[in-house]
Design a protein around this nucleic acid. Structure first.
Length: 263
DNA sequence: CTACCGATCCCCT
DNA sequence: GGGGATCGGTAGA
């Protein structure tokens, strides 16, 4: 899967030289293992949105892990219901829910089919289709200079802002993020210098355990990961609200909010 | 059937 | 720094 990042929807004056971005789809193996590991692993991965408006791409910089019925902060705490059934389904599905009657949030279902687990995508950095995202957020157009516009890095700095910027709502609930053309997850292959189809060969003879491709992270050199308590789940009680299941790329300008200082 | 409340954001003071 | 919007899910009567 190769896509060229472009600004076709932008006015000519905004058009810049473009560089190709190599994208490789994620696989079910990328979503296996403990849900908090998956949440950390998804940092740096790309969300690719394709609809009538065109192409929009954002890089994930903040996530939260949510478990099954035992996790008192998870929507799955009430067991399998009509709303949460997607969370109990196969990995790679989108769980999109409405919160506070007006905002949508996007989750990536993970783990194994039959057990509830999902990663909430809390923030991302716009990579392509930035003008479309600004319009989707209702922030400004080039023709209207009276509106104050935030920096592009704040366009998807929050779970509901992210959904608004990418045009994600309940109509996309349940779709397959590993295969659907409208909304899919990808890793930036070019960032790793790995061409699509260029897989590591057998390394069984070596002493060092081979880095498993599904365990690779998508972070750039020098980037580090912060963790902290999940946001807005105090109702779950100290046991579960206190777990450091929120993850983010340290010092990233697109974080929804700072991570608490280590005690 | 009714009541309560939320995995948020934005505008007001 | 504080509160309102807004509506569907969930639980309890």
């Amino acid at each position: 899967l190769t896509l060229a990042a472009h600004h076709a929807g932008d006015p000519p004056s905004r058009r810049r030289p473009t560089s190709p971005v190599l994208l490789e789809p994620l696989t079910p193996a990328d979503l296996g293992g403990p849900v908090f590991d998956v949440a950390r692993r998804l940092l740096g991965a790309l969300i690719v949105r394709q609809d009538d408006e065109g192409l929009r791409i954002a890089r994930i910089v903040e996530t939260e892990a949510y478990g099954g019925p035992e996790d008192r902060a998870s929507h799955a705490r009430a067991g399998r219901t009509a709303r949460t059934s997607v969370m109990f389904g196969p990995p790679g599905r989108a769980y999109v829910y409405l919160v506070y009657g007006r905002h949508h949030c996007l989750n990536v279902v993970c783990g194994v089919d039959g057990e509830a687990a999902a990663v909430l995508i809390r923030a991302a950095l716009p990579v392509a289709g930035v003008e479309r995202m600004r319009r989707a957020r209702g922030l400004a157009t080039d023709g209207d200079a009276t509106l104050v516009t935030p920096g592009d890095h704040r366009l998807a700095a929050g779970p509901a802002r992210l959904c608004q910027a990418l045009g994600i709502d309940r109509s996309l609930d349940g779709l397959d993020l590993l295969a659907d053309e409208r909304l899919r997850l990808a890793m930036p292959a070019a960032l790793h210098g790995v061409e699509p189809g260029d897989h590591p060969g057998p390394r069984a003879e070596r002493d060092e355990p081979a880095p498993r491709p599904e365990m690779r992270d998508h972070l750039a050199p020098g980037e580090t990961v912060l963790s902290g308590p999940r946001v807005g789940v105090s109702y779950a009680g100290p046991e579960w609200a206190g777990r450091p299941w929120r993850f983010g790329i340290a010092d990233d300008p697109s974080l929804s909010r700072p991570f608490p200082a280590v005690a």
